[in-house]
């Protein structure tokens, strides 16, 4: 097992190296010149030349590449052109916001999707099943920004129940009297709409995967044996069928955790949620190369690592899988 994990981690490193290289090439090929953005027109030619030398942009491309690799491997991602702050700090500031929103969204939709999927499979062909399946299909196929805007329009603009954008209200956070719970409550209040959007989009896929996986499992002989043993239907479903139906769902959850970080770009932009996804869109549209590079790298790492985690989890869920 340890050997397998090590092997997978080495693979991840190799793939990350390839991604770094592709990113390097992509950003050099992209239209727009970072220097013109950074260099103040009022600077003297000497000053701007000095800045270019300082950034290393005068060096041959191969040297630039090697410096880039060295910096990335030591966790040195440079300074954000826009913020003038270390990229690592910018990301570090935004990452918790993204994690808060998306982990909550994935866990919530996975829990609900899985338990409803179980019920749908158990009541196959009945009204409950039909209702759940249709609901899952409809919400799952909705276009995320459209749904997000629709929710904003109804619940924030028309009904005025929730804030339109943002993550915190200034008056609450600037109030010295406000305690932890007041602030947490304020964040939760801002989270309702983005969370609802993500939940509606995501729970359907878990439901459908769990449902079909459960239906396969329910045909197995060990379910008949469980019934013959005199177990209650509830125990058969939860203790015998569900643990066997987990695998495909775990893949699905793992991958959506990974995708949520970048799929988050849309959600975060619509709701002005100060997270990585919105930062990425911003960085790309403003030629903030260091920030964009680091964000892409972060997303790639998350996707690769969640794949490893899912594979390792398999071994815990199914004793037949051993590495």
């Amino acid at each position: 097992m340890r050997k397998y994990v090590l092997k997978r981690l080495v693979q991840v490193m190799v793939i990350l190296f390839c991604i770094l290289t592709i990113l390097f090439v992509l950003f050099r090929l992209a239209p727009g010149d970072p220097v013109t953005r950074m260099v103040d027109p009022e600077m003297t030619p000497e000053e701007s030349q000095h800045l270019i030398e300082q950034l290393g942009l005068d060096k041959p491309i191969w040297t630039q590449y090697l410096i880039y690799l060295k910096n990335c491997s030591t966790g040195e991602f440079g300074y954000s052109i826009h913020y003038g702050e270390p990229v690592a700090r910018v990301i570090w500031d935004k990452l918790p916001n993204t994690i808060l929103l998306f982990t909550t969204a994935v866990l919530l939709s996975a829990m609900v999707g899985i338990s409803w999927g179980k019920i749908a499979a158990w009541r196959k062909g009945k009204a409950t099943d039909l209702g759940l399946t249709i609901a899952a299909l409809v919400t799952h196929t909705l276009f995320l920004p459209w749904l997000a805007l629709l929710l904003v329009w109804i619940f924030a603009y028309q009904l005025n129940w929730f804030p339109i954008t943002g993550m915190i209200s200034d008056d609450v956070w600037l109030d010295p009297e406000a305690g932890f719970f007041t602030k947490a409550g304020d964040v939760l209040y801002h989270m309702v709409l983005p969370l609802t959007t993500l939940f509606l989009i995501h729970f359907g896929s878990y439901l459908l995967v769990m449902r079909s996986s459960m239906l396969d499992t329910l045909k197995e002989d060990y379910i008949v044996l469980a019934r013959a043993k005199g177990l209650t239907e509830r125990d058969i479903r939860n203790k015998h069928a569900a643990p066997n139906a987990w695998l495909p769902v775990v893949t699905s959850v793992g991958l959506s955790l990974a995708f949520s970080i970048n799929g988050g770009a849309l959600t975060e932009t619509v709701f002005s949620w100060p997270g990585i996804g919105r930062e990425l869109v911003f960085a790309v549209s403003h030629n903030d190369y260091p920030l964009a590079q680091a964000s892409f790298l972060l997303i790639s790492t998350v996707v690769l690592m969640s794949n490893v985690v899912v594979d390792v989890l398999y071994a815990f869920l199914d004793p037949r899988i051993r590495y």
Binding site: D221, Y222, A228, N244, D318, P319
Partner: peptide
């Protein structure tokens, strides 16, 4: 079931739950 009457299954190969 199982208390008074139990069963030895036709498909014993698959009658045991693989994850337990």
């Amino acid at each position: 079931r199982w208390n008074k009457v139990s069963m030895i299954f036709q498909a014993a190969m698959n009658a045991l739950n693989p994850v337990k």
